[in-house]
């Protein structure tokens, strides 16, 4: 009987069912310790390493940056804003065509409305359906340096996009923003400094799709349009597009490690010589502090 009692006590202590439901983004291991199983690709300090191939030239690449995703309810309009901020983004690559880019700030701010509309201010206001969210894309201080091209650098001082989002997702994890963009770019070389302006003569899109648990993340963006050379007065067409797909494979000390596939194409805008260029890359990245609890 004693053995039976002891065994039942043991059974009660070890065969205990999982504790009462708590949070969906936490799992419990056999010892009862919890660990996160959801991540936010829009949050965290990102450090990545990988390899890339550009114009047939392979190279090692490094990337780093701070991602910050915020959501807030506007006090003046009582509607939600979904904001993605990327700060201090750095990408550097070696090889024969080594170079780096630094982006001080890159952000997409979206105001979500369940039922968008255009108000026509007649005596009795008229409401015309407008099935889009309104987004603001901001980028400031994007510097590119390619030592193999010689002295000089390219600096996009600022870029502002007034975009609309037809997906209108009630979540910060899905967006598709499209619309016109204005930008100013400086190209400095020993031959002089060129100013190029795109006064809303370019179009851009920005797409983001992430799974609910944040294990998969797809992001794509593109820009095409005309830059005006301030001095020369000429119009130059250029296009850019890039896409990346990330999948979290493991988490080390609850910090997710993801494999990342990326590709980009630049037409008439790469470097000081405004080359056409394509790039493919694969790598691993750690996103610290992006666990969702």
């Amino acid at each position: 009987m004693l053995a039976l009692g002891l065994a039942l006590v043991l059974a009660a202590s070890t065969g205990e069912p999982p504790p009462a439901p708590e949070q969906p983004c936490l799992a419990r291991d056999a010892r009862g310790d919890t660990f996160p199983i959801c991540f936010d690709p829009g949050d965290g300090v990102v450090v990545g390493v990988g390899t890339r191939m550009s114009q047939g030239s392979p190279a090692l690449s490094l990337r780093a940056g701070v991602h910050l995703r915020t959501g807030r309810t506007s006090q003046s309009k009582a509607t939600p804003w979904y904001n993605n901020h990327r700060l201090a983004g750095v990408e550097a690559w070696g090889g024969e065509q080594r170079g780096f880019t630094v982006t001080a700030y890159d952000g997409l701010l979206r105001r979500h409305l369940e039922e968008g509309f255009i108000l026509v201010p007649t005596a009795r206001p008229v409401r015309i359906p407008f099935p889009f969210d309104v987004s603001l894309a901001l980028r400031a201080g994007h510097l590119e340096r390619r030592p193999w091209e010689g002295r000089g650098w390219t600096l996009e001082t600022g870029r502002v996009g007034l975009l609309v989002d037809p997906l209108r997702a009630a979540s910060g994890r899905v967006w598709l923003a499209l619309g016109p963009v204005a930008s100013h770019t400086l190209r400095y070389s020993p031959q002089g400094t060129e100013h190029a302006l795109s006064p809303f003569t370019s179009l851009m899109f920005d797409l983001g799709l992430e799974t609910e648990d944040g294990l998969w993340a797809l992001r794509a963006s593109g820009l095409a349009g005309w830059n005006r050379d301030v001095e020369g007065g000429t119009l130059d067409f250029r296009a850019r597009s890039d896409a990346s797909l990330e999948r979290v494979l493991i988490a080390v000390q609850d910090q997710p490690v993801a494999v990342r596939l990326a590709g980009s194409y630049v037409g008439g805008d790469a470097g000081l010589q405004r080359r056409d260029e394509w790039t493919l890359g694969v790598g691993l990245s750690v996103r610290a502090f992006s666990s969702r609890w």
């Binding site: 039976l4 065994a7 043991l10 070890t14 439901p21 708590e22 799992a27």
Partner: peptide
């Protein structure tokens, strides 16, 4: 009887050991 009881009890107290079942996600509140 004791032996059967002890056997049953030991069966009940089987712990997963090295082949632990995969962690189960904690369910959300209904």
């Amino acid at each position: 009887v004791h032996a059967v009881a002890l056997g049953c009890a030991l069966l009940l107290t089987q712990t997963p050991g090295p082949e632990a079942p995969p962690p189960t996600a904690i369910e959300a509140a209904p």
